[in-house]
């Protein structure tokens, strides 16, 4: 466990909490892509099946459970509790465009051809593209609430910190998981454009709106 890994996990958790607090306080999930949140719930579900098969550490187990609970509460808020505020019209990304290639790729390129390992691989590939419906929604409406941009910032920061973690682990432990690293790089690239807008607009007190 290194500092990048811890900070990455904290950013990830913070992102999920920011989103939940935003929805809870405003009693609204306007501007949030329910599809992205369903994908994240699917990501955690398929990745953390090893909760039942292997014990890594108390930290690992507790964090996995918290992530799963947060993801499902978020989906519940969007599709059940505050469904009237959900902007279904603009959440129009076609999920099959992500799910079909991701499923295919997880069967083709994995560490071992076993059900649990294929599901883990599926979750890694899916996570790298899960934010696209959200980014698509923002590009469609042309704007995002400031708190939504904070959520995206911490989600992107988590990915960037994981890259630093892998560089660290490569040098100190000779650890290198090609599937995770390649997907992580792809995922981080998706946030670059957003990071630019976040720094140039949101941090200067302006609302994020696209020209």
């Amino acid at each position: 466990m290194n500092i990048f890994r811890i900070l990455g996990d904290v950013s990830h958790l913070l992102a999920m909490i920011i989103l939940l607090v935003k929805i809870w306080r405003s009693k609204s999930c306007a501007g949030i892509s329910g599809k992205s949140q369903i994908l994240f719930a699917l990501v955690f579900t398929t990745r953390y099946l090893d909760l039942f098969t292997i014990f890594i550490s108390v930290y690992n187990t507790v964090m996995k459970v918290i992530f799963l609970v947060c993801a499902y509460i978020t989906v519940y808020m969007i599709y059940m509790k505050f469904h009237k505020t959900f902007d279904r019209e603009h959440d129009s990304f076609r999920l099959e465009f992500l799910l079909v290639p991701v499923t295919g790729l997880s069967f083709l390129e994995n560490h071992s051809f076993t059900p649990l390992e294929i599901l883990w691989t599926f979750s890694i590939y899916l996570e790298s593209v899960a934010i696209l419906p959200q980014l698509f929604m923002i590009s469609k409406t042309g704007e995002a609430e400031t708190i939504t941009t904070h959520y995206l910032f911490f989600l992107g920061l988590y990915r960037a910190l994981y890259l630093a973690n892998w560089i660290w682990r490569y040098h100190t432990e000779n650890f290198y998981d090609q599937i995770a690293v390649v997907s992580g790089v792809v995922q981080t690239i998706f946030y670059c454009d957003f990071f630019y807008l976040y720094v140039t607009k949101v941090l200067k007190g302006k609302k994020l709106s696209l020209p």
Binding site: I54, K64, W120
Partner: peptide, 10 residues
Amino acid sequence: SRKVLKHDEL
């Protein structure tokens, strides 16, 4: 024997 993979990251 089958390789058991341990993924220790979240």
